[in-house]
C-alpha cells in the first residue's frame, strides 16, 4: 500500500485554477520527484500536502488517514534552510522534537547520534553562521528527518547551492537514503537532479497544472557512478524534455 496518496487534488485562487486533478502516490522508502516548470503549481501542491493550504477538491492521505489541511504530519524542507540564527545547530535540529513535547535535553540526546552521519560532527554547539551552505542544508535535512522518520517533502532543497556542492550533496543524499529510508517527495525543476535522485518522476505541466507523465527510473537507488553520463540517463532526460515541451504547445 502507498504511504502517501494525493487524490484528485485541485486548487484555484480567485477562479484561477492552479492545479487540476492531481494524483500522486508515494510508496514506503521510495524517492519520487515532482518535476515541473516554475509557476506551474508545484509550491501550491507542496503547501497542500504539508497542510498549510487547503485543497478545493481532493484529499491527502497518509498511512490510510486523511490529513488534508492538517499540519504536523508531513515534514518538509525548502530551498531556504531556515536554521534559526539564535539557536545552536543541535537545538535547531532538535526543534521538531521539542515542539512535539520532548524535553530539551532528551531531544538533544536523540539528535546527537545523527551528527556524524550527516557530516555535522563538531558543530553541535556552534551557531548556524559557522556552517557552510552545504552543511546548512544537511542540518536542515536532519531537522526534517527528526521531525518525521516516515515521510518528507523537499521543495528544491539543493537549488541555492553551487554546482560542486550540489553534486556532493546529491551523492551524500543517495548514500544516506540507503540507511534512513525516508520516503521522500522531491519537488524540483532540475531534470538532472530528478533523474539522479528518484525512483519515479511525475511531470507536472500545463495550465492549470496536471500530471501529464509518470516516468519510472528503473535503476532506482542502485544507480552506478557517473550515471549522468550514461546513455540511459540521456534517454530519460529526452523523455522528460519531450514531456515538458509537449505540454507547452
Amino acid at each position: 500500500m502507498s504511504l502517501l496518496i494525493v487524490k484528485n487534488v485541485s486548487k484555484a485562487f480567485d477562479q484561477n485554477k492552479i492545479i487540476d486533478n492531481i494524483n500522486i502516490e508515494l510508496k514506503k522508502g521510495e524517492i519520487v520527484s515532482l518535476l515541473g516548470t516554475s509557476g506551474g503549481g508545484k509550491t501550491t501542491l507542496f503547501n497542500i500536502i504539508a497542510g498549510l493550504q487547503t485543497a478545493d477538491q481532493g484529499q491527502v492521505i497518509l498511512d490510510g488517514v486523511d490529513i488534508t489541511g492538517v499540519t504536523g504530519k508531513v515534514s518538509y524542507m525548502l530551498q531556504k534552510d531556515m536554521l534559526l540564527p539564535y539557536k545552536s545547530v543541535i537545538d535547531n535540529v532538535a526543534l521538531p522534537l521539542v515542539i512535539k513535547g520532548m524535553k530539551k535535553k532528551e531531544a538533544r540526546q536523540k539528535a546527537l547520534p545523527y551528527f556524524k552521519q550527516f557530516g555535522l560532527e563538531g558543530y553541535e554547539n556552534k551557531y548556524p553562521t559557522a556552517l557552510s551552505g552545504g552543511m546548512r542544508q544537511r542540518a536542515a535535512f536532519l531537522r526534517t528527518y527528526l521531525f518525521s522518520e516516515s515521510v518528507a517533502i523537499l521543495d528544491e532543497p539543493f537549488s541555492a547551492l553551487d554546482m560542486l556542492t550540489k553534486a556532493q550533496l546529491h551523492s551524500w543524499y543517495m548514500d544516506i537514503m540507503k540507511d534512513i529510508k525516508l520516503s521522500t517527495l522531491f519537488v524540483t525543476h532540475d531534470i538532472d537532479e530528478a533523474i539522479m535522485l528518484s525512483d519515479r518522476i511525475y511531470v507536472l505541466s500545463g495550465k492549470p497544472g496536471t500530471i501529464t507523465h509518470e516516468i519510472v527510473i528503473r535503476e532506482g537507488s542502485k544507480k552506478p557512478k557517473a550515471f549522468n553520463l550514461t546513455p540511459e540517463f540521456l534517454s530519460y532526460k529526452q523523455q522528460i524534455v519531450e514531456a515538458l515541451e509537449g505540454s507547452l504547445t
Partner: peptide
C-alpha cells in the same frame, strides 16, 4: 519575523 519560518513551525505542528 520570516513568514516561512512560521509556516515551517506550523507544519511541525507548533
Amino acid at each position: 519575523v520570516d513568514k516561512d519560518e512560521i509556516n515551517l513551525m506550523k507544519a511541525m505542528g507548533a
